[in-house]
Amino acid sequence: MAGTDDFTAQTKPDSSAGGPESTAGGTASPSELAKFAAMAESWWDPDGKFKPLHKFNPIRLAYIRDHLASHFARPVARPEPFSGLTLLDIGCGGGLLTEPMTRLGFTTTGVDALERNVQVARLHAARSGLTINYRCAMPEALLSQGLRYDVVLAMEVVEHVSDVDLFLSTASELVAPGGILLAATLNRTIKSFVLGKVGAEYILRWLPRGTHDWRKFVQPSELSSGLRGAGMTVKEIKGMSYNPFADLWSITNDLEVNYVVVAVKPG
């Protein structure tokens, strides 16, 4: 999947977006709220604008869940297996990962650089009857407040940040001792240019053109070394690959396009 949480683009200028930590929530006008509601519909419509993300979501959710279940030794067959643990979703977008993680029992925080994403996510969480702490904030802000989380997710977001090393060290610092971090992004290869950029944006039209800047894609070695430099132990790197003939996503060993890194912080 070519990083479809495009609204998380921290570097993309967007007129409708309030800046990080701008006054959110209560001050939005009714017409703005209606706009957010319409956007929430589109974020969460499995056949809508984010269809590829919805198709991709079960595979990455199962992958994340399996790692977390084995890391924290929680049985997956029980309801809310992760209760008592905290999770931070960086670049939460409309909440497509944050909501499922909340249902699995985590006490969740979702942050996004775009105010409108946070509004959309809040609205949808309320409709889903879920309690999620959504904030329009940069990870640095959480860090300066001394916040730490058992799990930090940075899925399909690394390719949008301006300073990868700074981002990785901030995200790593937010992981509590004994905690775990998962980061997914796009590799910088010829194949990812053809499939992840040209294929996803121009041929399949999964993503709006200009969603990604291929030069900002991050190689697995860069991501791993950034995490190691921040005191994390990299446990696994896996590819997430799309088979256009079966129209199916799967976890593979092909790191050429989309991949995910699992890293833990020593206890």
Partner: peptide
């Protein structure tokens, strides 16, 4: 299976 990855089990998909 949907519930165990935290999805809303009543989603059309």
């Amino acid at each position: 299976d949907a519930a165990r990855i935290g999805l809303d089990i009543g989603e059309t998909g």
